[in-house]
Amino acid sequence: MSITIDKNKCIGCGKCHEVCPGTLIKFDSDKKAFIKYPKDCWGCTSCIKECPVYAIRFYLGADIGGMGSFLHTEKKGDILRWIIEKPDGSISEIRINTKESNQY
């Protein structure tokens, strides 16, 4: 369980770093974010929800059954889009209206 940050997308805004409950995200000399302690990630996705350019994605470690897919979110108004990319390139999406409650 951890995240990866795409350096090419990162604009160095610092928002992911601001929210991480484990203080795991740092900046390299180019002011690009990176996860310094990947094994210490809780998988809370807080950083992902903050990133304005969708540079952060999370994945399941192979030790807990991960098979190479990535998950990230994009927010539009009240809609939080959860986007899943599979290793074969296919993409699926689940949309959640943040103003609506869970059914369960």
Binding site: F58, Y59, G65, G68, S69, I84, I94
Partner: peptide
């Protein structure tokens, strides 16, 4: 959806499998 709202890894697990 419910899992995405609290523990997204479980939803990812379902989708991956």
């Amino acid at each position: 959806k419910a899992y995405l709202n609290m523990s997204p890894s479980q939803t990812l697990k379902w989708l991956e499998s």
